[in-house]
């Protein structure tokens, strides 16, 4: 399977992927101070895994981000988002209330001043990363498994 892959592509993708991942993390974490946010950051993080998937094959990508973990990330992100919303409802009586910013107002223009927006950004980033990776991973598996669709049990067993 790895026979026809170019050495240059493998090496360059190995060097590029961590930096893309780091940039995605920056975009997620500083989304409330600079352009960015959860959606593009999550997609950039997923793109770093997709680069590995396209350049070095399915096995290398699954070593970095196993399929089960990616599936869980999708659910964890959604649950985290809802949990923040419910905590806002509990603490200040409104769904999606920014309770952290009300009780712990930080210095303006610092990292920890936006309350729940940071947490929501992280949740959305996790969720989008998991979702995009799962979709592209299945499309790459479909080519190998052929016509009949994907046998999910064989993937989860690996």
């Amino acid at each position: 399977m790895n026979d026809n892959r170019s050495l240059i592509i493998i090496k360059v993708s190995k060097w590029m992927a961590p930096f893309i991942f780091l940039y995605g993390l920056y975009v997620v974490l500083y989304g409330h101070l600079s352009p960015g946010g959860g959606f593009p950051g999550g997609v950039i993080i997923a793109a770093s895994f997709i680069l590995i998937l396209l350049a070095r094959g399915r096995r290398a990508a699954l070593k970095k981000l196993p399929y089960g973990v990616a599936k869980e990330l999708d659910a964890i992100g959604a649950l985290m988002f809802l949990t923040v919303a419910m905590l806002g409802f509990i603490f200040s009586g409104l769904f999606f209330a920014n309770f952290l910013q009300q009780y712990l107002p930080g210095e303006t223009r610092r990292w920890f001043n936006a309350g729940t927006i940071v947490i929501n950004n992280i949740a959305i980033g996790i969720k989008v990363c998991g979702a995009i990776f799962v979709i592209l991973f299945f499309l790459s598996v479909l080519r190998i498994s052929g016509e009949g669709g994907i046998d999910f049990r064989s993937i989860e067993r690996k």
Binding site: F96, R109, A114, I117, N120
Partner: peptide, 19 residues
């Protein structure tokens, strides 16, 4: 909201239902 990026403050605080 304490967020300097107003797009994010609209997206994740004022209009979080959309998100």
């Amino acid at each position: 909201t304490g967020s300097t990026n107003q797009v994010m403050s609209v997206l994740l605080d004022f209009r979080a239902y959309d998100t």
